[in-house]
Design a protein around this nucleic acid. Sequence first.
RNA 1: GGAGGGAUGGCAGAGCGGUCGAAUGCGGCGGUCUUGAAAACCGUUGUCCGUCAACCGGCGGACCGGGGGUUCGAAUCCCCCUCCCUCCGCCA
Length: 422
Amino acid sequence: MLAIQLLREKKDWVIARLSVKHFTQTHLIDEILQLDEQRRQWITEHDQLQNLRNTASREIGQLMKAGNHAEAAQKKQQVAEWNEKINALKNQLDEIEQKIQQLLLQLPNLPHESVPAGESAADNVIIRQGGSWPTLPENALPHWELASRYDLIHFDTGTRLTGSGFPVFKGAAARLERALIQYFLDYNTRAGYVEYLPPLLVNAQTAFGTGQLPDKEGQMYFIPEDQFYLIPTAEVPLTNIYRDSILQPEQLPIKMTAYTPCFRREAGSYGKDVRGLNRVHQFDKVEIVQLVHPDQSYQSLDEMVAHVEGLIQSLELPYRIVKLCGADMSFTSALTYDFEVYSAAQQRWLEVSSVSNFETFQTLRMKIRFRDGKQTRLVHSLNGSSLALPRILAALLENNQQADGIHLPAILHPYTGFTRIG
RNA sequence: GGAGGGAUGGCAGAGCGGUCGAAUGCGGCGGUCUUGAAAACCGUUGUCCGUCAACCGGCGGACCGGGGGUUCGAAUCCCCCUCCCUCCGCCA
């Protein structure tokens, strides 16, 4: 959510920034400002009346004590009149505040100055590319075929147990999945991230805090009886841990990591995008989150990018880092880098991580501040995958297939207990 | 799920319906003392909104789990919800 104060002070600049995200409903801003004007006027009137009432009530108390009931009754009469106005104003205020809030929620986050507008994902900027291209045997298979050849992942069984997009991992695949989680968490905690194991179900307030509600309601699984949402990413519970708090500056930066399963409805997806592990409804992911001083958040973003890059490098996968253009960025982000690994057998890039700075877009909703001298200021929140498992697993299987099986990168050997599948 | 008790400032813990944003203690911050520290003593200590000044800050309003109600006036009385504790039931 954008601060209304920003709209008041730098409206034109805000509109220019929003245009980079191809957001054109600038009339919303005018509406907001108009309503805000009205709101402040009403607040002033409301508060003045309350002031009158407070004074009169105190006087009534004195009069009663002095036994002057006649004058007290007269004042009561007067207060009753004010009360009517106060209540009317209060109702108007509640209504207008709700309206403003609702409009404010329709404004996406401002993209960072360095973000190009672009027209589509094709205009994303490739920052750098790394890792070495694998040389595959002639009859290289996509991971879903490798999965059945080596008895690793059962998509059809998952469909029978639940529905499509809920794969069952078996034997070496299950072990490899667990090994990756363990390795990723070790890698993150070694870099100073504190490990958490958060709830997988959250309430509406929590889902609102990170921006899943109201924007992406249909993306989340929902349990009506308890009004709980299944988390689409660990970002949601992790970032909300510090909701409604005022931090000491020396507590920053706060670095958190967690492994969780993630649940996404992914309505409307089809075709090769959803083949195999490319897109599933339940998957494992290790996430990193940072809450940082606003002056340092872009440094932190670079640090997180380097962190994730190091992790992918250690897995010996070919990758590239892409800076998203305005047209492809999420509603909540100010700057996002996507990490993609090349899946040789499918001959396509698969997104395995997305690292973003949200600046104050989330922390305003969550009221996460820090003490800056005499005042409080919002911290910046950032997060990234480190890493999303299914596509990493797909790339590992595909890129490392040889005639005699799948050779795992050395870094994983201590975690898996085996070096080769097949 | 059933019965009872509770929810107050960073923490602990008071609070006859009016002068309570809220006693007291601890903690924090500043100071006196000290070579330094501790102790002692003195002072200070929340958040949000509006408004004026726009450097400090002044003024007004709101906030005692959340929401409604009674009243001229509610932390204090009533109702609903949530959460916590104790007991019973169920259960990994």
